[in-house]
Design a protein around this nucleic acid. Structure first.
Lengths: 264, 264
DNA sequence: CCTTGCCATTGCAAATATTGAACGCTATTC
DNA sequence: GAATAGCGTTCAATATTTGCAATGGCAAGG
């Protein structure tokens, strides 16, 4: 299906124009270059006239730039202003940064602070990369499916989600080396016991990922601290020690943000 | 008037829900903490029910976060994802960064690459701060009125705008030490001759600002390179040399982005 | 030079989002 | 402890946006 869940989002919402606008913004972001009206409308399954009105309004708001001679649209800097305001208002990036720096430098891995958005996806809010050698690079704002990799096992282990929904989401994931659902469930159990989750080459071949949950307000984790490294590097340094560090730092960050620790 | 130009934007548009959504996003960004439905609606002059539907859709899109127990709304990380995509698609920040670093380190000033959005405002897209001592700090995404300070004189000098509109905008500006309109016009003329503009303590007392226009596609400048420093620092180092540097770097950046130089 | 095809744009009818009042609820005040 | 005030939410009528078809303009191709 070419159209994502736009149809559903539009019909179920009482403000469909906004769902369309968001879809257009994401499409323009994904696109390699500026896009014309018709390609946008076709890609999203929108009527061109409606699409035109949406785009014009977005241009008026400074969120989309319009190139008059070529009649092409692209994202504009207004997005940046909102992003800056968001970063000023969310305490998590600032609180987690020092933990990430410590983890990255002491263990030679790339450390991420991510936000968990339900079962949909996770978003990287803070990043720290280890100095030397090769490091796996990610940028703030990157999005990943929620249930994939180590963070996914954390969400499943500590999130108290409906098993049926979990299974449905799980089946949609794309792994380099997919674990069977039963193996995955066992790993989720293991994560629940350990207080952190580990993904050894399933998500990305040759890359080991660890994650520990962070709690802010509710009893289900809202964020996570993640560590990525080449399989060899992490297994040499001892995944257990790294996992313990993650769990400890995650608990510290949880406490800083007023959230209760996991094990009660 | 508490309500900005929302009424105008809503009525003139064929997609008013989007204008409302953008206003809500900006309001949530400006606010000190999470906001309830009613304060948002009151501040923006919206009907609560409409506001509720807009907010729900924004939450569904991951642009706004909703705290169920307190029923409060705030910006969410989805904004960041869009911002990252924007930064990947706009070549200006990458191209201008090395120029800014050079200007900042050689002249001991804070250097900015800004985008010009018509006569409305300018947005900082790239920043470089000088190492030692105190430096004036600004962050990527910051917004300023278009006609203020040195950049404003650049826009007036090289932008080919309607004098009446210019005057109207000028009268709305807030300066620490407002220049009279006639003095300002003379300074604009001077900027046109020099190829760069200078604001000596008018915008912010004790701070000197210089700016030179960058051209990408059209004959009116789309971006600018800006340098800020304490009045004493800049007058000691020689504003002319700094201005010449700005003009030269701006021309280089213009060339890199395929734009024609100013003087033909 | 004419034709063809695609694109952006506009007008009109119909489906639909917006409005304003009413409801239940919580937290505050007397 | 009761009443009140404010909040978030729902519902039905209406003004509005949406969707479709037609228009005009541009560029490529014959």
């Amino acid at each position: 299906m070419k159209v994502t869940d736009l149809d559903g989002a539009v019909k179920s919402s009482k403000a469909p124009a906004i769902a369309r606008a968001a879809a257009i913004l994401r499409l323009l972001g994904k696109a390699d270059g500026p896009m014309g009206l018709q390609p946008i409308a076709r890609e999203l399954g929108l009527v061109p006239s409606t699409c035109l009105y949406v785009l014009r309004t977005l241009v008026g708001e400074g969120l989309v730039a319009f190139d008059q001679p070529t009649k092409r649209y692209r994202l504009d800097a207004g997005i940046l202003t909102l992003a800056r305001q968001y970063l000023r208002s969310d305490p998590f990036p600032g609180v987690v940064q020092s933990s990430l720096d410590k983890i990255a430098s002491e263990h030679g891995v790339t450390a991420l602070g991510v936000q968990i958005s339900g079962l949909d996806h996770i978003i990287a809010l803070a990043v720290s990369e280890s100095e030397g050698n090769f490091s796996l690079s990610t940028r703030v704002g990157s999005r990943f499916p929620a249930l994939i990799s180590a963070t996914g096992r954390c969400i499943a282990a500590f999130g108290a989600h409906d098993p049926a929904r979990l299974r449905k989401r799980f089946d949609q994931l794309r792994w380099d080396n997919p674990p069977g659902f039963n193996l995955w469930k066992k790993q989720v159990e293991q994560a629940r016991r350990d207080g952190y989750a580990i993904d050894a080459g399933h998500y990305i071949a040759g890359v080991t990922v660890l994650a520990a949950p962070v709690y802010t307000t509710s009893a289900t984790p809202s964020h996570a601290i993640v560590a990525l490294g080449l399989e060899g590097v992490i297994s040499a340094a001892g995944p257990d020690r790294l996992g313990d560090t993650l769990r400890r730092e995650a608990a510290l960050v949880s406490a800083s943000l007023g959230g209760g620790p996991s094990d009660g």
